[in-house]
Amino acid sequence: MSMLTLRKGITLNHFQLKLLGILFMVFDHVHQFFYIDGIPMWFTWLGRIVAPIFLFLSAEGFHYTRNRFKYLLHLYIGFVGMNIVSQGLQTTFPSDHMLINNIFGTLFLAVLYMLMIDRLIQSIRHHHWWNMLGTIGLMMIPVLLSFVAISLLSQEHISSWSLYIMYVLPIPILVEGGYFFILLGVMFYVLRKYRIGQIIFFILFSLMIGLLSGASLLDLDTNFQWLMIFAVIPLSLYNGEKGRSMKYFFYLFYPAHIYFLYILAYYIQR
């Protein structure tokens, strides 16, 4: 239950919070594909709250789902499917815009670590030390894959098989938001019983992102990712209720609107 649910005021359920994230996501991607046509910078400022909202909802969804592996599988299929379709579209409609959008990879890795953290905790509680060591080993695999990816990308010529592997393996260093967003999603899950702890961590995390950029927090032309701090408002209004069910809407709408905007930008900017 959220802090504000205890008062008689506005609250948001899971479905409403997801719709809010989708709305601001469209603003962000309209700026991404049409900024050279005069779309203002504040469109992408609004979009900064989107990733935290969906990382938060992924933690909630993982907690409540009856089949965690199926939940992971859906995210993985979304990741691979978008990589394949994006590559095909960029070949068919070559553009200056790069189709790098694929939040499914970030969500998959965040949820994967949620699963492994649960397994690690259970292993410690029941003194299953071999399971504990095995889980820690599994947790290190994505990190090691990041070093392999960095090594491959630093080469002058990248073999086609290396690219194909990256299309089917979500690698922390390559997914949207990288390690930072994966960590944020995991911490939303670890602290989900402590809403105030979630909020405090998220505020500090957002400010840290801004300070690490090296630019002033007021230099919003170059340092604007920290504006995700304003997601604290809708997250605080979350009431823990599911609301209306549209199970696969996000899985379809997310890639569909990106591809629509990409093709539209291709024809307009020709």
Results as ranks from 00 to 15, higher is better:
S2L: 03
M3F: 10
L4W: 04
L4P: 04
R7S: 08
N13Q: 05
N13D: 14
L17S: 03
F24Q: 02
V26H: 04
D28L: 05
Q32P: 07
F33M: 08
I36S: 07
D37R: 15
D37V: 02
I39E: 01
G47M: 05
I49D: 05
I53Q: 00
N67L: 08
H74E: 14
Y76C: 09
V80M: 11
G81Y: 12
N83K: 11
V85W: 04
V85R: 10
V85D: 03
S86H: 08
S86V: 10
Q90C: 06
T91Y: 12
T91W: 12
S95I: 15
H97I: 14
M98I: 15
L99D: 02
I100Y: 06
N102K: 11
F104K: 12
T106L: 11
A110E: 06
V111E: 05
V111Y: 12
Y113M: 08
M116S: 15
H126F: 14
M140Q: 08
V143D: 01
S146Q: 09
S146G: 13
F147Y: 13
A149S: 07
A149V: 06
L152G: 01
H157C: 06
I158M: 12
I158V: 12
S160N: 12
P170E: 05
L174A: 09
G177R: 02
Y179F: 07
Y179S: 03
F181V: 12
G185T: 10
M187E: 05
R192Y: 07
K193W: 13
I196E: 12
I196H: 06
I203K: 00
I203L: 09
F205E: 09
L207S: 03
L211P: 05
L217W: 03
D219E: 12
F224D: 06
F224M: 06
F224T: 06
L227G: 06
M228V: 15
I229V: 14
F230N: 12
P234N: 04
L235N: 03
S236P: 07
Y238M: 07
N239R: 03
N239Q: 06
K242M: 11
K247V: 01
Y248V: 02
Y248N: 08
F249I: 03
F250V: 00
Y251H: 02
F253Q: 03
F253E: 04
Y259R: 01
Y262P: 02
L264D: 00
A265N: 10
Q269T: 10
R270K: 14
